[in-house]
Design a protein around this nucleic acid. Structure first.
Lengths: 343, 343
DNA sequence: CTGAAAGCGCTTACAG
DNA sequence: CTGAAAGCGCTTACAG
């Protein structure tokens, strides 16, 4: 392989020192117009681009941020959240010449190990998703000295750099829409309870129903997979008559879509017999017939905001929690008035 | 921030030189058992881990590989291929202590620019997806001296390092299943024709039908989005009676699922009135009711194989095309015998 | 088997 | 405004 052109080659060609070349590009100190032109010229002539690793070593900044995802690959694949979120991060990072280092690990322990590796000169900071109840990661990262921004579904109890949405309000709005349409038996297919955002949705669901004076015990514990959406729906619909729901809220769109399909295949009309809603607003949801009501989480926007906050943190800004305000209730055809009791 | 511990600290603590510490960890030369123990001890005591950037500069190997995706974020989000593929790459990379640098860019030009940046010390090689007809990327990367492995849907015409599946055979198998069940009007909702794998599927579809003596002009040009799957289905079903299909093959699962939903909402039973099939086997497909017939592309496996091949390439192996053999026809309830002509 | 030293390609005080 | 030089934390010939 041909020897690559270095800053030394450019300096030589422009008749200056390496330091000067460096300064021209960083703009950290004034450079006379004339030498500046000579350097720029030489750089383009030689097609030079600074070596990322050399720069990283000299500045102890890598220009990379890390994202470690500890989930089963199958879930990552169906949940439209991750790809959108990643695309959002990228959008803000690439503007700043930064890059995203992605790691997919099988377990929570592997995730911690990954942070240890990343901390040693691979990334400048990390983004942490899927906060769990009593999550050890904020403390772990603090001990490691690795700057981090967390993404949460509710206002956090700690004081680290966190971006949080208000999933509780969204669930409440959804429940209110159903109550207003006369639904009295509303069921919930939840996500895994160990995720804080999933637990928060279930809690919000329960509280909202109780406050409305309705039964709140029609809950089936799902795990965000299509299979659990289908199975939960079947179980809920096969309950004794007084427990059969007229509306089902799913904790994500994938489970809702699988449930939707099961309902139709078994003679239930949506929304005439059963109203349904998801959470996330995956691209599919708008284009089902009828469209799936859901809470848009705007993952792309979240990615942008999270990456922006992390960059700010790296530049010395104050951390602290910050509300996201990006959930949006989207009502589509899958929700209608409760069927008349004669049903 | 506290000064990080370096190889010098470890060397000092163990009473050896930095070179020796380095050799203990790389194993590139024999080290006496006794010093080896001392070094290892010191390293764990001090909790030392080598700096990735320093190593990168010294070896001119970053231990990262790059993946640049030039697609609309919305498509990346719904297409389950990407996340699964990425998870697969990760599985093999993390075993080798390597990492994945991901970039999502809006245009093909931005993709080329990204490669230029990556080539300067950010990654050791890249994975190229979504090969297009007359794709400039193989040549561009060769000129850049950036090792690359391509993923294709058919045997490539060049001789670079490429992994290819045989999508044509899969489409043919699918068509054969339908023909055997008496279908005579089979339609296709394609992906964007500029992608080689998408075009290959459409070609295969057309040829298979013609060879079976059937009409092959019931093609609607989709773009892999749910919206196009729904719209294509509507257009196909609203054609004049002699052109209304009894079976529809979609070029991915997302379009098929949106089509499926449209069909049911408009009074068509699946599979009694219309048989349908997708391509990809997204997690949802198995859990719809009835299940969606599809061609599993095993994206996770593809990711593993692609990353493995790139690692081999980086270690000096010969490139060359290689067949993947990982497509798998999966027949589920969405395919049945053609409705009797009386319909 | 181990040490002493040069080098990877940048950036950044320090002088002038 | 520019130059000369040290330093970032590793690896790897080169000696012994």
């Amino acid at each position: 392989m041909a020897k690559r052109t270095t800053i030394g080659d450019v300096a030589h060609a422009a008749g200056v020192t390496k330091g000067t070349v460096s300064l021209v590009f960083s703009g950290k100190r004034p450079i006379s117009h004339e030498t500046r032109q000579r350097v720029l010229r030489a750089a383009t002539d030689l097609d030079w681009q600074p070596s990322a690793s050399a720069r990283a070593l000299a500045t102890s900044r890598t220009g990379c941020i890390g994202l470690v995802i500890a989930r089963d690959p199958r879930i990552i694949a169906t949940d439209s959240f991750f790809p959108q979120f990643i695309a959002g991060c990228e959008a803000t990072l690439s503007k700043r010449g930064m890059a995203l280092l992605l790691q997919v690990v099988p377990t929570a322990d592997a995730e911690l190990a990954a942070y240890k590796t990343l901390a040693r000169g691979r990334v400048d900071g990390v983004i942490v998703l899927d906060l769990r109840v009593d999550d050890p990661r904020p403390q772990f990262l603090r001990d490691l000295g690795l700057p981090a921004v967390m993404l949460a579904g509710a206002k956090p109890t700690w004081d680290g750099a966190t971006l949080y949405s208000d999933d509780e309000s969204s669930v409440r709005e959804l429940v209110a829409e159903l109550v207003q349409r006369g639904h009295e038996r509303i069921a919930h297919v939840s996500g895994p309870p160990q995720y804080a955002h999933s637990a928060a949705r279930t809690d919000a669901f329960t509280r909202a129903l109780l406050e409305a004076g309705l039964r709140a015990d029609l809950v089936w514990n799902g795990d965000f997979t299509a299979a659990s959406g289908r199975d939960g729906t079947r179980e809920l619909m096969h309950a004794e008559p007084t427990r059969v729901p007229t509306a089902i809220l799913y904790s994500n769109d994938i489970m809702a879509i699988a449930g939707f399909s099961w309902l139709r295949a078994h003679g239930y009309a949506v929304p005439e017999d059963v109203s349904i809603a998801g959470f996330d607003d995956s691209d599919l949801s708008a284009h089902l017939s009828p469209g799936l009501s859901t809470v848009a989480t705007h993952a792309l926007l979240r990615g942008e905001r999270t990456a922006t906050k992390l960059c700010a943190l790296l530049e010395g800004a104050e951390p602290g929690p910050e509300a996201l305000h990006c959930n949006e209730l989207i009502l589509r055809g899958s929700i209608a008035a409760a069927p008349s009791p004669s049903h």
